[in-house]
Structure formats: structure tokens, C-alpha cells
Design a protein around this nucleic acid. Structure first.
Lengths: 119, 119
DNA sequence: CCGTATCCTGGTCGATACTG
DNA sequence: CAGTATCGACCAGGATACGG
């Protein structure tokens, strides 16, 4: 049974986890949240992700209705990504998750040093 | 870079996703939420999971402070799992995730048919 | 009853090179 | 600039058998 099969199986929470629960998607959401970004800007802000994987993730998020992809057929090409209403609605929930983790975190461990993105 | 390395990296949201973002953990949380359960009861309720994987997940969740494992050294052995305060605090957030997904879901697709667990 | 030990598979993620 | 195409590594998850 593939991950997505089971995730759809334990729905709708499972579908939510499938939409959000990958290595990069939460980060991508946080990076796009403030304004529309071009593909290259995204890649620059999350500079440890490869272009292929970034493209893959963005395509899935588009399918899941989290992001909008606008392609301008110019030379040179320009593509802009932004959050949908659904994607924006996710932000407060992600913020709660952060607070939850922070609240119950072991106080001895420092942890925010190398953070990529913060809500 | 392994998944968990990055997850710790994009903290604390990443840590939250690591604690919750696996194939089975959200389901396990929902299954334990009402009362203390023995290992065998857990396995029975999530009958598509193998014992090895269930054990693995429970151990990780114990490390992350989500569940409590109580071992009674009897014959035959008995082990009971329950949610910690941290685990319980996760429930309202998971419920919001469900509502979020349900709200923005494509209305044409039916989906709740084979649900394992519901918050 | 509640697990380990062992081995295996397939899917995700990534590096690199190429294209319209 | 914004991607595909290709190939490969690695690990989470699973089948099965055995152990205290």
C-alpha cells in the first residue's frame, strides 16, 4: 500500500497530511506566504532544494489546491507562484503547530539556530 | 540529508511535522485518544499495520513525548499506551486540519468510505 | 502477549546534464 | 529563466520468523 493510498484511506485528516506532510511543502508554504514569488526566488530562498524536487513539490501542491501557478509566455519566461485561499487558510494551523511544539519542547535543547523558515 | 535532519533544521514547525508527519502517527494518536490501550488492541484497531512498524512508531512517539508506555512485568506481559499532555494537546490541531481539508475539498469526490479513524 | 531480528521492496529525494 | 530527462542512493515501511 502506497503512502498516498493510505493517506486517502484515513481521510480527511490523511488527505491533509498528504497535502502538507512532505519534506518540503510546509517550508514552501511559509516561503510563499507573504507575496507572489518567481520560481527562481523560491529556489534561492530554499537553497538546499534541487530544482527538480522543487518543481515536483510545486506541481503536487498545485494539484492539491494549495498554490497557484501563473505562467507568462515571455522571453525570458516568467512563472509566479502564490498561495490559494486554501493555502492561506493553512497558515494559522501551522502557526499553532509551531506553538504546540515550542510549548512542550525540552527546554535544554537549543534549536532555532539553523531555521530555514518561520511562521 | 535525511528527512529528520531537515525536519529538525526547519524547526520548530519541522519538529512538529517530524513528530506527526509519518504514515501512521496521526492515526495512532486518534486511536489512543479516548483511553489507554494495550499493544494488541492498537494492532487490532489498525489492522493493516505490521507489528514491527507499530512498535517503531510507538517508540518514536514515546521519544517525542507524545505517548506514555507502561510495561507491566507480568506473565503474560501487558503493555499499555496512552497519550501524554503533549499528545492530547495535538488533538484540537488535528481536528482543525480535518476541517480545513473538508472545507476546501472538491465536493464531487466522495471520500469517507474507508476511513480508519476520525477525530 | 509483546515484541525483536532479518531481509527486502519501492518510492522519495537528489545530482547532473540538457532544452525551449 | 524555468524547467525536463535520466540515473542512482537511501530509507521508511512491510513480510516473515523467532524470542522472553
Amino acid at each position: 500500500m502506497k503512502k498516498n493510498e493510505l493517506m486517502a484511506y484515513s481521510c480527511p485528516l490523511g488527505k491533509a497530511m498528504a497535502a502538507l506532510g512532505s519534506k518540503w511543502k510546509p517550508i514552501i508554504v511559509l516561503v510563499i506566504k507573504d507575496r507572489k514569488l518567481r520560481f527562481g526566488e523560491l529556489a534561492a530562498r530554499i537553497n538546499v532544494i534541487s530544482r527538480k524536487v522543487l518543481t515536483d513539490q510545486l506541481r503536487e501542491m498545485e494539484t492539491d489546491g494549495l498554490v497557484i501557478r501563473e505562467e507568462f509566455k515571455e522571453i525570458p519566461p516568467r512563472v509566479e507562484y502564490s498561495l490559494t485561499e486554501k493555502g492561506l487558510a493553512l497558515l494559522p494551523i501551522m502557526f499553532q503547530l509551531e506553538e504546540w511544539e515550542a510549548k512542550y519542547q525540552d527546554k535544554d535543547k537549543k534549536f532555532d539556530k539553523d531555521c530555514i523558515a518561520t511562521a
